[in-house]
């Protein structure tokens, strides 16, 4: 009751509050840089924002900042799409067919806790220093989150709904396609949400290790050339894009799962 109430009142107030909080944060940052020792190790937001806009026309390395973002995004999307597709299939199969679970679960459980970036050296050995090694790492990042969620989604299907469908005459295949699959869509979306976040984090890490473009490269290049401003520009780009991706995913979910409260 209280929650609904808060939500109702503050749609605009929330945006308002967000703008104010960011603005205040930037002010404090700027003042700290101007008047305290923080200025020795950091640059102020005004400078960062300035360089950000400058780099939209004047390239860092070979590309403008938006092209770096596009590079990173294209890597994320390739790995993410393949990882999600395979993750959804494997997760659902593991959830629905017990033998599949018995077979794949142990391998999966061992691979899952390994952070994707731990694979960077190996993937370079396997796939070289080009794009495929980055796709592979992002694939791993997306795959593990989605498999888990798709699996949990199948397991969480309300048995009463399955009973109701059987009672109405559905056979096994129909129960699977008309009840189990739609039921786990919200779970899969929760997984996609996590996966897009960790994919984005992973691409930045991968680019910091080996690349000649992309936002991760912008950051590491800034370090090499002792340019704190450029590092900050890279970080800001990472933050903005990460946020935009999360918002986009939520929006798609709300469109596709109008029936579900989670999607609201």
């Amino acid at each position: 009751m209280t929650g609904r109430n808060l939500k109702g009142i503050s749609k605009y107030k929330k945006i308002y509050a967000a703008v104010i909080s960011i603005f205040v944060f930037l002010c404090i940052w700027q003042l700290a840089v101007m008047f305290t020792d923080v200025g020795i190790v950091m640059v102020g937001p005004i400078e960062v924002i300035k360089l950000f806009f400058v780099s939209m026309v004047k390239p860092i390395g070979h590309d403008t900042i938006q092209m770096h973002i596009v590079w990173s995004l294209s890597r994320v999307m390739t790995g993410f799409v393949i990882g999600s597709a395979l993750g959804v299939v494997l997760g659902i199969l593991m959830g629905w067919f017990r033998p599949m679970n018995a077979l794949f679960r142990p391998i999966y459980e061992i691979i899952r806790p390994i952070p994707p970036i731990a694979w960077i050296p190996l993937s370079i050995v396997w796939f070289g220093i080009g794009e495929p090694s980055k796709y592979f790492i992002i694939f791993l990042a997306a795959f593990s989150a989605i498999t888990m969620n798709a699996f949990a989604g199948v397991r969480a299907v309300d048995p009463e709904l399955i009973g109701a469908a059987r009672m109405l005459g559905a056979n096994n295949r129909q129960v699977f396609t008309t009840i189990v699959l739609p039921s786990c869509v919200p779970h899969i979306f929760a997984g996609l949400q996590i996966a897009i976040g960790s994919s984005w984090a992973t691409v930045v890490a991968a680019e910091m290790v080996r690349a000649s473009q992309g936002v991760g490269w912008v950051i590491i290049r800034g370090q090499d050339s002792n340019s704190t401003v450029q590092i900050m520009v890279g970080i800001v780009a990472v933050g903005i894009v990460g946020f935009a991706l999360a918002v986009l995913m939520r929006w798609i979910e709300a469109k596709l799962c109008a029936w579900n409260v989670r999607g609201r």
Partner: peptide
């Protein structure tokens, strides 16, 4: 069957 918790398919 008509269920107490309706068991309607929400999607």
């Amino acid at each position: 069957v008509v269920y107490q918790r309706t068991a309607l398919f929400p999607w």
